[in-house]
Computed example of a mutant assay.
Amino acid sequence: MLGQLLFRNRKYFLAKAIILGVLALVESAGQRILVLWVLFGNSFWDAVNQFIQKLTGDKDMTDYSKMIALVYIAIHAIAGLLIGIYASRLASRVDGWKKEYGHHFQEPGPAEDETAVPRKKRKGIMKVIFLLIWSILALALIFPNSFFLPSTDAAFILLRSIVLLGAWFFVVKPLCMIAFRKWMNKKGVKYRQDIEQIRLWLPRTRQVFLHSWRISGSQEGIARVRLFSKMLIAGIL
């Protein structure tokens, strides 16, 4: 959505590509830090600070975890800047690659038949066992004095992460899937054409990938990777 807003017109393409790259990677870094904070809580960051303090012999308590997080985000921002510059240059070359390699994908062959591999159904008893274990751990986290569990920070961090992951798999994920199915049933008719196009494009994308790799076999090493990348972009776009 951010890309659509930025590239509604092609003015200042380089600046917009840089903004998109920086924001996308900074958001990605922020999401990872947020996941760590949600799963492990402040105890994790305190443990990191204590570990580095003991490692360096620093007597003053310094917030090393915040420094690490800021450096991590800064690295992603720099990477986003470089990717934005590269993407803007790449966009100017795509038309030439289409003219040079596009004829290889004018008439793609029929999609290969894929035999569905039957998956083993999960046994209901295993779900019940996991749910029971998760319920006990959740109660132990809520009422720590009622269970004989270690009172160390490491045990609390581990218990918290297990309970939150279990909450995602046993509670949040099923509810989200139910809501998504209801939304799809209501909006399916409206977006049926778009969904059908996506469904048809998936096997074609696989064909383009395999075809590009086969043709690039005339080169070796880095030259093959570069040729494969050019053909893949030309075939997909």
Rank of each mutant, 00 (worst) to 15 (best):
S229M: 11
C176A: 13
I78M: 10
M61N: 15
V163G: 05
H211Y: 15
V208Q: 05
Y12C: 08
G102Q: 02
V22N: 02
R204I: 13
L165K: 03
V22Y: 00
R89T: 09
W168S: 05
L232Q: 07
K230P: 06
A15E: 09
T62S: 10
I129Q: 04
G84K: 01
A79Q: 10
S28V: 11
I178Q: 09
I233V: 15
G124E: 10
R160V: 02
N145S: 12
G3D: 08
I85T: 04
A24C: 10
L70S: 10
I195Q: 06
Q219C: 11
F7M: 02
L165W: 02
M231F: 02
E112S: 05
T62E: 09
P108W: 04
M67S: 12
D63M: 07
R199T: 13
L149P: 00
G41Q: 04
V94I: 15
L159Q: 05
L14G: 00
P203I: 02
D58N: 15
L132K: 04
A24G: 09
I195L: 13
H104C: 01
W134I: 07
G221M: 06
K187E: 14
I78S: 05
F7Y: 03
L5I: 02
I157F: 01
P110D: 15
Q207P: 05
R206S: 15
G21R: 05
I19W: 04
V163D: 01
A47K: 05
M61P: 06
L39Y: 02
D95P: 03
S135T: 13
V163K: 08
L237Y: 12
F40A: 11
A116V: 14
L227E: 12
I19Q: 00
R181Y: 02
K16E: 00
S229C: 11
S92M: 05
K54T: 12
L55Q: 08
G96Y: 02
Q53H: 03
R10I: 01
K98L: 03
D46H: 11
L159R: 08
V71S: 14
L55T: 12
G57C: 00
K11P: 00
I215F: 11
Q50T: 15
